[in-house]
């Protein structure tokens, strides 16, 4: 089955991974900007990274017939440095019209601090000013519930935000209902230990029906599995769920969400 991975960090993966994903049915992916495993020291460090996301990765993906899209921001971990964050936010418009940029992301919170919230709100302003979609990172483990609620508060308090153009990622059992009930899209990240397994993700699909719900692998430099979305497809089939529902979650939903971005020029497989 063709599928789209809506959240995967291919800068951390080998070219062999692109080949494997293509063989598994991946036809498109989107890659949010994230933490490199260390704090970058300057705005030029981010400028180089955004070149990689908007130029290098689309070419690597295209070699295997995969269409690569991306999201730009300074991530929550580095948002404690408000001064650097403001410099990066001011620089992002240099890249916003690149053909594979879908919006601003993955913005969010990490430890739910005042500085993180300040930078989140300034990213929101940027997205509103340039009419961009938003992809959101929610915190891990014990910080997720509180941080997700804080993020939803900031989004909901601003009437200029179109909730149907916002994807709140890394939802789990205790956050998914609030995200969907408030009218946002929700993403489940299939990731060992800190997020959720394919089995738990399918439980959430069964409970919610799969409306406005996406699934992704995150596939980054941590202990993750870039082929986690095919694992989800396998688990759904194993449980006897319909091909229509499977396709909705792994293909139709990402298509519908991404299609709200003017840069989502997806070419159907001929």
């Amino acid at each position: 089955m063709d599928y789209i991975d809506p959240h995967i960090h291919m800068v951390s993966r080998t070219t062999d991974d692109y080949a494997t994903l293509a063989r598994m049915g991946c036809v498109a992916m989107s890659e949010p900007a994230f933490w490199a495993g260390y704090d970058r020291g300057s705005v030029d460090g981010f400028r180089d990274y955004f070149h990689q996301l908007t130029d290098t990765e689309p070419k690597r993906a295209a070699q295997y017939g995969i269409q690569h899209f991306t999201w730009l921001c300074i991530n929550a971990k580095e948002a404690e440095n408000v001064s650097l964050s403001r410099d990066v936010i001011a620089m992002i418009p240099e890249f916003i019209d690149k053909p594979n940029v879908l919006g601003i992301g993955e913005i969010g919170l990490n430890k739910n601090t005042k500085n993180e919230a300040t930078v989140f709100l300034e990213h929101m302003e940027l997205a509103i000013k340039f009419q961009q979609q938003i992809l959101i990172h929610t915190p891990h483990l014990e910080d997720k519930y509180q941080g997700t609620r804080m993020i939803l508060d900031m989004l909901s308090d601003d009437s200029r935000i179109d909730r149907s153009r916002v994807l709140v990622d890394h939802v789990e059992e205790h956050t998914i209902t609030e995200v969907l009930d408030r009218g946002f899209w929700a993403g489940m990240t299939l990731y060992p230990i800190t997020k959720c397994t394919p089995e738990r993700a399918v439980d959430m699909i069964e409970k919610t029906g799969g409306e406005r719900l996406l699934a992704n692998s995150a596939g980054d430099w941590g202990p993750s599995k870039p082929t986690a979305v095919p694992d989800l497809i396998f688990e759904m089939r194993r449980r006897g769920l319909s091909e229509t529902l499977i396709r909705k979650v792994v293909y139709d939903n990402p298509m519908e969400f991404f299609s709200q971005s003017k840069n989502f020029t997806f070419t159907l497989r001929s």
Binding site: K114, T118, D157, H174
Partner: peptide, 25 residues
């Protein structure tokens, strides 16, 4: 049939709706 959700909340920090006022944001 909501044990996973209750377990997640057990291992979560509390949410205070007044957080914006407290952080002055």
């Amino acid at each position: 049939a909501d044990r996973a959700e209750r377990l997640q909340k057990l291992f979560s920090r509390d949410y205070e709706s007044s957080w914006r006022k407290e952080m002055q944001i």
